[in-house]
Design a protein around this nucleic acid. Structure first.
Lengths: 343, 343
DNA sequence: GTGAAAGCGCTAACAA
DNA sequence: TTGTTAGCGCTTTCAC
């Protein structure tokens, strides 16, 4: 038994799984033909297609996408980066993104940047290392250095939830400036005079706040009170914020909150204090979260179509990866002020 | 310029990125040595380590994890499957999982199974195709066939958010039966008599409901009213559910809700009807979501340590992938009844 | 401690 | 339409 070993050379432990080779052998075709039968079935004879399909079924073959990605430089993987998945804000977007990608044979890899930049480098490295076909930045401001790295790696980037004047690459978002402006105008039109803003301390929320203030100035209203809460905004911090606000100006008659969570907290605090909403205090939220419409009073808020946003982002990346060009890679999906009862 | 091309044979468009080869050449070592310098730095001379580190920095090299995964059959990728990311329930778990994995050099791939089983096959195929080092099932009941496929593919599986008697592989969860029991006992001890359950129509919630009912029977209380809402549970469906409940039995004096979202909706509806909480109606939630503690009245609810759960799941998979064995791969993380004001 | 060779499982390029 | 060949970029195995 020591002589004439059929295979002498070094042997690697293979993963043991069924490979395309096995399928091809069973179907009695070359591996590349089996590959074509699976990836471009219309470029293969019906006979071959049948044999390969059959072999796949009999073996339970599942293509190794690592190998495929390496060979084709198309990983069919998309990275999404959010500050944290634990906040409810980007959920709808991530949900839609995952679905839209899955429908096209892509998978989503999730990255959390946190609210500090310290780990950005490690995160980028982890992402680039997977050679994704695209990356979706949601509610993120990457450092200039980070952007450069992404670009250098040749990875298509979709920025979302914002309309920056200088997009890195592709973009689908809306104008935070216009949100602030429109909400302020709405409140003013309803006769509110002493306005206030309770805002999460993140870049976009701050921009809504600033444009809200500017609009107030243009309308000749007093300078709005501003109360900042640390990101991520919580129900607790929202209650506290209203308390602080009232301590500074008990006569505030409307608050624009940077999220529905905050708005809900403000309504809770107002009720606890016997302040009537919308009678004494108008409240406007942001996000139109699931509960907004059925709160009592129903929350007036700003609706962002996160689903549509996610779908467009997915389409952008898949198109780009397929070699199609994306002629208009900047989309403003707008927003809708949902007029309900709270303001 | 037409003659003597330095490389004549077929040329593939390489990705163009810096490879380990480039780094090795610059550091004047063999590729495998560069690989060792990066992966097992203590098995390499300080001199080599320095040269390689230097070359990496100068070139901006980022290892191709697709290639690494293919060669080593360790993808450093973990798949997490949830019914939907859009519900707030599993957020903390997914958050913790992502973080814990990132800290160990792993990435998370997100899959959504939806609330119907139709797409399960496609999802499993997509997951298995990536050859992940593990898969975390969160709030999911996979079909027997699905389980078999996973097992056949040799992928370590961690089931979470439950304590099944027959785990596929590893498991970290808690007993839904005991939750129902404990909540019922708590309510009874506080003198509540006419109990009710508002429950999302998913497997786990139903189990909490059943054990709640059984406990009520043991305590000699009337059979609790049950109101089912379709998954995913919403604020709107919660309000409706209380309305239905009261139509059937206006004297209900306590409700156990299968999620904090539902509990919040119940409190909203109660307030709209002038029913005092906890005076007329006790309300208990489930999940201890962020807002629960600061609602007014503060919500009595059941707390699950999603962070710990995620961390343990991550550790299980990474240990398994590292060849360590996981001696006790079944962990009951328990739960805590957070006694607050609403009941 | 370092290196040469081989190969992980797939697909791009070329040829018939 | 089908097949041959040569890699994609890395790590395993074996040898020094």
């Amino acid at each position: 038994m020591d002589h004439a070993p059929t295979t002498t050379r070094r042997t690697r432990r293979s993963s043991g799984a069924v490979t395309l080779h096995d399928v091809a052998r069973l179907a009695d075709v070359a591996p590349i033909t089996a590959s074509r039968a699976l990836n471009t079935p219309d470029r293969v004879s019906p006979e071959v297609l049948r044999k390969v399909t059959d072999a796949v079924r009999r073996t339970g073959y599942v293509p190794n996408l690592l190998a495929g990605g390496l060979a084709s430089t198309r990983s069919r993987l998309v990275a999404a980066v959010v500050p944290t998945i634990a906040g409810p804000v980007f959920l709808q977007t991530v949900h839609a993104l995952t679905e839209a990608l899955a429908a096209r044979g892509y998978q989503l890899m999730l990255g959390q940047s946190g609210y500090v930049d310290s780990r950005e480098d490690a995160l980028l490295e982890a992402i680039i290392g997977r050679r994704p076909d695209g990356i979706v930045l949601t509610g993120i401001v990457h450092s200039a250095q980070g952007r450069k790295r992404l670009l250098a790696a040749g990875i298509p980037v979709v920025e979302t939830w914002d309309l920056t004047p200088t997009p890195i690459d592709m973009l689908v978002g809306f104008s935070h400036d216009r949100v602030g402006e429109e909400v302020c105008g709405y409140l003013a039109a309803r006769g509110r005079k002493r306005l206030a803003v309770i805002s999460g301390d993140d870049d976009r929320a701050r921009r809504r706040q600033k444009s809200f203030e500017q609009a107030a100035a243009r309308l000749g209203l007093p300078i709005p009170q501003v109360e900042l809460v640390p990101a991520p905004a919580t129900h607790a911090s929202g209650r506290k914020a209203l308390a602080n606000l009232l301590a500074r100006d008990p006569k505030v008659d409307a608050v624009f909150c940077s999220s529905d969570t905050l708005a809900m907290a403000v309504m809770t605090e107002a009720r606890a204090r016997g302040i009537a909403v919308p009678g004494d205090l108008g409240v406007v939220g942001f996000g139109d979260l699931e509960f907004a419409a059925t709160l009592a009073p129903a929350l007036t808020t700003v609706r962002i179509d996160g689903s549509r946003l996610g779908e467009i982002a997915a389409k952008f990346i898949v198109d780009r990866a397929s070699g199609k060009d994306v002629p208009q890679p900047v989309v403003d999906i707008g927003f809708t002020l949902m007029e309900r009862e709270s303001a």
